[in-house]
Amino acid sequence: MRKIVVGYIVAIFILLLSIWLGISVGSVKVPLSTLWDTEADEMATNILWNIRMPRVLLAGLVGAALAIAGAAFQGLLKNPLADPYTLGVSSGASVGAVMTLFFNISAPILGIFTLPTFSMVGAMLSLFAVIGFAKLVDRTMKMETLILTGIIMSSFLSAVISLMIALTGEELRQIISWLMGSVSMRGWPYVKMVWPFILIGALMLWFNRRELNAMLFGEERAKYLGVNVKRSKLMLLLGGSMLTGSAVAVSGTIGFIGLVVPHMTRLLFGADHRHLLPLSFINGASLLIVCDLVARIIIAPTELPIGVITSFIGAPVFAYIFFRQRRTKGA
């Protein structure tokens, strides 16, 4: 129990630290005191409130959403390599988002929530398609089967996106940068656009934390334990799609956060979803804020897409987990 308490304290401390770094470090140094100092330099106040703060918050929200969604997908599918990116769910969300952006769809009732909503629908459709197909291939849904299906889905959807971009003839650089994933120059509207979805999605997962624990022993055993497996599964898939969809809508496809964060958290604090979910949420936020900071300053004044940084960290971790799973299984 003590270990878990320490885990939460350390996670929150790291989160605050990354927020502080995210706000203050950059081409213009912004001291933390600007937050409350009413007589602070006007430009600093401006940079802090209109550029850095929404950027840091957005990075945090996106990171948290992807990490908790990854943790839930892994638990639900009993597959340590599952995350929104590897399952092709992010690609599905991208298709939804690209369609909204480039066909300029605006549903009157949804208002500013049109983009995340379409993104979520895209995420959900691709998720159901991937799981459905993987189950058709082999009923037990082996780790590799699911990931391969995710790759098939991603490749296909990338082609769909490329086709749409080619047809619309818009300037490519901007779109590609969006596809690589970025949280820059989004501002407050984007933060306002996604936080409700991320909150609801995260709560949907959290309410199923004990059901996730039970389902790790198989759906059959979970049913015997009194879990309403159908309802829990649906809640988890919907919640996961909601989180992925809203994250992709504001930041494009940022890979591997949902893989790296739950993996590290599990390594340190175990696979109990009662703690794995909230800890992944907090750590995901911290990691993406730091990644964004690195993307901003590493080759300043040019900015790297944040997806580059996360892939640099994520791909080796993916390889490592894959290696270890195969070795221990002896398959």
Partner: peptide, 20 residues
């Protein structure tokens, strides 16, 4: 049953039996 991809401690495993 078989042990799965994620490791639980023995205590956690048994605790899940209290779900109902």
């Amino acid at each position: 049953l078989h042990a799965h991809a994620f490791s639980h401690s023995v205590r956690e495993t048994v605790s899940i039996g209290r779900y109902p």
